[in-house]
Amino acid sequence: MLAIGLGVLALAVWASRDQANLAKVGNCLTNKGTAASPDLVIVDCEATPAEFRVLKVVPDTSATSACNGVAGMKQVYAYQSKAKQVVLCLGPAK
């Protein structure tokens, strides 16, 4: 998968090991992996490890351009497995 940055860091993953495919608007996430191999986990927004808040969820695509114009967006995460594609538009957790 190729994730194209929109002037922000674009994260991408093929495996289904993380919880990105379960994230909903308002959820907070932390990356237990690296920028090159992310492993996003849903966490309590008040918890210390919360890094990102989901601002928008765009199902059935891996096009990071789906986050263009989302207010407060700092990063884009494109998730793709054999069964599902989703793009998360992420802002700061706090």
Rank of each mutant, 00 (worst) to 15 (best):
Asn68Trp: 09
Arg53Tyr: 02
Lys82Gln: 15
Ser65Lys: 11
Cys28Ser: 10
Asn68Val: 15
Pro38Gly: 06
Leu2Ala: 05
Ala83Ser: 13
Gly33Ala: 06
Asp44Val: 03
Gln75Thr: 14
Lys84Thr: 02
Val13Trp: 13
Asn21Asp: 08
Lys84Gly: 02
Leu40Ala: 07
Cys45Gln: 06
Ala63Met: 07
Met1Trp: 08
Trp14Phe: 13
Gly72Glu: 00
Ala3Val: 13
Gly91Ala: 02
Asp18Asn: 02
Asn27Thr: 08
Ala36Asp: 14
Leu40Glu: 07
Arg53Ala: 14
Leu2Arg: 05
Gly69Met: 10
Lys24His: 12
Thr61Gly: 10
Ser16Met: 00
Pro59Leu: 01
Leu88Tyr: 04
Lys24Phe: 06
Ser37Asp: 15
Ala3Glu: 05
Asn27Tyr: 08
Ser62Cys: 05
Leu9Asn: 13
Ser16Trp: 12
Val87Arg: 00
Lys32Tyr: 10
Arg17Trp: 12
Leu88Pro: 13
Glu46Asp: 15
Gly33Pro: 13
Thr61Ile: 05
Glu46Gly: 13
Tyr79Val: 04
Leu29Ile: 02
Ser37Gln: 13
Gln75Tyr: 15
Met73Leu: 04
Pro49His: 01
Val70Gly: 09
Tyr79Gln: 00
Leu22Arg: 06
Asp39Asn: 10
Ala66Ser: 15
Gly7Pro: 10
Cys45His: 06
Asp60Ala: 13
Ala78Thr: 07
Gly72Met: 07
Lys24Pro: 11
Ser62Tyr: 13
Val58Lys: 01
Ile4His: 03
Met1Ser: 11
Ala20Thr: 03
Lys84Arg: 15
Gly33Tyr: 08
Pro49Lys: 05
Asn31Trp: 09
Asp44Ile: 03
Val25Trp: 07
Trp14Thr: 09
Leu11Ile: 11
Leu9Pro: 10
Asp39Glu: 10
Tyr77Cys: 04
Val76Lys: 06
Lys84Asn: 08
Ala10Lys: 10
Ala12Ser: 13
Asn31Ala: 12
Arg53Trp: 02
Lys24Arg: 14
Cys67Asn: 03
Val41Leu: 09
Lys84Ile: 04
Asn68Gln: 14
Ser16Asn: 14
Cys67Trp: 05
Gln85Gly: 03
Val76Gly: 09
Pro49Arg: 01
Asn68Cys: 09
Ala23Thr: 06
Lys56Phe: 07
Thr34Glu: 07
Cys89His: 02
Ala71Cys: 03
Val58Ser: 09
Lys56Thr: 07
Ala63Gln: 11
Ile42Val: 01
Ala66Ile: 10
Ile42Asn: 10
